[in-house]
Amino acid sequence: MAKLAFLGLGVMGYPMAGHLKSAGHEVTVYNRTAGKANKWVAEHGGNACATPREAVKGGDFVMACVGNDDDLRSVCLGEDGAFAGMAEGAIFVDHTTVSAAVTRELAEAARQAGLGYVDAPISGGQAGAENGQLSVMCGGDQGHFDRAAPVIDAYAKICRRLGDVGAGQMTKMCNQIAIAGLVQGLSEALAFAQKAGLDTDQVVEVISQGAAGSWQMANRHKTMAAGEFEHGFAVDWMRKDLAICLAAADEVGVSLPVTALVDQFYKEVQSMGGGRWDTSSLIARLTR
């Protein structure tokens, strides 16, 4: 069992930290809004601290799950940042979806401080975090990964190292690229079925058993058809991720025309007031 800190208690981090505590680890938490950290401690035990630096003191591992590049820098760097308080040899595991550029920047800062760094973005949504069934895609030194993986297993369905630092983030971009096109295709299929006067449940029952089947279809078709979009990853966050995808595509020289188009469709959803709706809300622009 390890002594560790968890930084960031949003819809993903809150249950992930809980799984670590349930697995027997000694967990200290930090959240920018202190009330949420105190609520977590009241529910799970452990300790809460006012700064990342305090939270990581004496820990073997530090897990982070925050919002974006700037949020990650703020919890890592500076006088009150995690790197200032971590002991030499401790490992920082970042579950935030951020750019590969900031990942490499912070990994180098960690190296200079004598720390390990694993980028480990996650997929599976809020339900996956709550059920401990996340897909974790990692980049970093093999030895650092080997040490961190048994801890990550507390909330992982699968945890794999894809290469050196940054490989995890690039793999997460593959994940978001695939999801963007898939959700748009499902949205169009359901909207078509509705307009054609078909029973969407019956349609999905049939086509889900063939090549069109997907997790999204199985788990979201009913709420999509009903116009209910309160089940996970928000459109605002998806647009943040797709911006990272498109920037990375320019860097590596790949064209992502479908991803770019779907990003604009999500922009339309935002203009409809759906920034906090989940990503299945693409159908809303087709059925309004």
Rank of each mutant, 00 (worst) to 15 (best):
Y155H: 13
D141N: 13
L162P: 01
S135V: 14
S135C: 13
G143C: 05
Q126D: 13
D153M: 04
L162E: 03
F145H: 04
G143K: 08
G139D: 05
G128Y: 07
Y155G: 09
D164G: 12
I158D: 14
Y155A: 15
G132M: 13
L134N: 06
P150M: 01
V136R: 08
S135K: 07
D146Q: 06
H144N: 12
M137F: 13
D153G: 12
D153L: 02
A148C: 11
K157L: 14
M137A: 05
D146M: 01
G132W: 02
M137H: 03
L134M: 15
M137W: 08
I158T: 13
S135D: 08
R161V: 02
D141M: 05
C138G: 01
C159D: 08
N131R: 12
N131K: 15
M137G: 00
E130V: 11
I158A: 13
N131V: 00
I152V: 15
A149E: 15
R161E: 03
G139V: 05
G163A: 02
G143I: 06
D164M: 04
R160P: 03
G139I: 04
R160H: 11
G140N: 07
G132Y: 06
D146P: 02
K157N: 15
E130M: 13
R160N: 15
G163M: 01
A156N: 09
E130C: 10
D153K: 15
R161P: 00
A148Q: 09
F145S: 01
A127F: 02
D141E: 13
P150H: 05
L134W: 06
L134K: 10
A154N: 03
D146G: 04
F145K: 00
A149K: 12
D153V: 03
V136G: 05
G128C: 12
S135Y: 11
K157C: 06
G143M: 02
A148G: 10
A149P: 00
G132S: 10
I158Q: 14
R161G: 01
Q142P: 06
Q126P: 00
I152A: 08
L162H: 04
D164T: 07
F145D: 00
G132V: 09
A148H: 08
R147M: 10
Y155S: 14
Q133R: 10
C138K: 03
C138W: 08
C159E: 09
P150F: 04
V136Y: 12
